[in-house]
Structures are given as C-alpha cells and as structure tokens.
Amino acid sequence: MADTIFGSGAGHWVCPNDRQLALRAKLQTGWSVHTFQTEKQRKTQALSPQEHEVILEVIRKAEKLDIIEQQRIGRLVERLENMRKNAMGNGLSQCLLCGELLGLLGSTSVFCQDCKKKVCTKCGIETIGSQKRPLWLCKICSEQRE
C-alpha cells in the first residue's frame, strides 16, 4: 500500500491535475488513460455482416425448432383427448379403454397406478417405477405422463 503514495516515483499511479483532465476532455479520451483504448477496441470488435448472418440463422433455427415442438405437443394432446373420448369401459368390471369384461370369465386385468382403474393386459402398459419395480399404467395415463 505504501507504493501508491501520490506523486512518488515513476510507475506509480499519480492523480492527474486539472490541466491534464482538461486536455483529456478536449481530446475526448475520458478521465482514464485506458478509456480511449477500450473505445478503439469496442469499434474494432464490431461484428461483421457474416457474423450477424450466422447469429440470425441460429435464432431462426431455434424458432423453427420451437414451432415444431409446439406442433408435436399439440398432436400428443389431441391424441390424449381422443383416447379419453373413445374410452368404452367403466374401469371396474370392464376394461377402461376397450370395454372387455374382466375377471374369471373375461380377460386378465391389471390395475393402473395413476388413475386406479382396471384395464386388460392389451390396453395396459408395463413400465418401471422409481423404485425399479414394474408397474402398470393404462394407455391414457401413459400418454398423459409423456
């Protein structure tokens, strides 16, 4: 800290006097010795038209991918709504989706972990749960998770 005493020796920071500050103001170099250098750097670092075009192309591509993703999500939602509308059973004695009878005389049933309804093994999807155990979901709940 002793090195930075004002006005002591070469190589140390010296507070500019009023005359120097007035000269810097006339030359528009700012109050710092480094101000003009950074201004020159900023001007030389301006983006070229090719760089602008590359940046705009990346933005266009991202917008295009966003539109495609929105369309995909729209199709998934539409498909889910159609499955809900076309459900034929009650989920207790009949398969929730296809309406097939379940039980001793009917098809084998599985219990959907999400909606707690019964579905036949054709309309159920077996997945792995968070505890690495198999669990069953109806197609509606599976689509909803997706």
Rank of each mutant, 00 (worst) to 15 (best):
Q28E: 13
T35L: 12
V119G: 02
T44F: 09
E78P: 00
E63R: 14
C98Q: 06
Q20H: 07
V14E: 14
E81H: 11
E126H: 03
Q94K: 12
L76E: 08
S93V: 10
K43G: 07
H52W: 00
G89N: 03
R19L: 01
K43S: 12
L92D: 12
Q94P: 01
I5P: 05
G124N: 04
D66T: 11
L137K: 12
C120R: 07
A25D: 10
H12N: 10
E81Y: 06
G106K: 12
G129W: 06
T38D: 08
G99V: 05
R133S: 08
M1G: 15
Q131A: 09
K139E: 05
L65E: 06
G11E: 08
L27M: 08
A25E: 11
L104R: 14
Q20G: 00
K40P: 00
Q41S: 10
T29M: 04
E126Q: 12
D66E: 14
K118G: 05
K118C: 11
K116P: 02
E39M: 10
K26G: 02
K118L: 13
S130R: 15
L135R: 09
V58K: 14
D114R: 07
G11H: 08
S142M: 00
P134S: 14
I128C: 06
S107L: 12
R145S: 03
G89D: 03
T4G: 15
G30D: 04
G129D: 15
I55E: 14
R75F: 01
L80F: 06
G7S: 08
C98S: 07
E126D: 02
R75T: 00
V58E: 11
R19E: 04
K117E: 02
P134N: 13
I68H: 03
E146I: 01
K118F: 09
K85R: 13
S32D: 07
G30Y: 03
V110N: 07
R60T: 01
V110M: 04
N82H: 12
K117L: 02
E81C: 09
L27T: 00
W31G: 15
V54F: 05
Q28H: 09
G9R: 10
S130V: 13
T121G: 07
C141H: 02
K40H: 02
V54I: 13
L65I: 00
N86P: 00
G9S: 10
I128K: 10
K117W: 01
E69D: 10
K26L: 04
R145I: 01
K40T: 01
D3I: 04
R133Y: 06
E78G: 09
R79C: 12
V119I: 04
N86C: 00
T4N: 15
R42C: 01
N17T: 03
H34I: 06
I55W: 04
C123Q: 02
K122S: 13
A22R: 14
D18G: 12
R42I: 03
Q41I: 05
M88E: 10
Q131F: 05
S93F: 03
E100Q: 07
T38I: 03
Q113G: 07
L76H: 06
R60A: 06
R79Y: 11
S48Q: 02
L27G: 02
I55C: 09
Q144P: 00
K118D: 06
Q113D: 09
S107Q: 11
M1T: 10
L92T: 10
G74R: 05
E100L: 07
C95G: 01
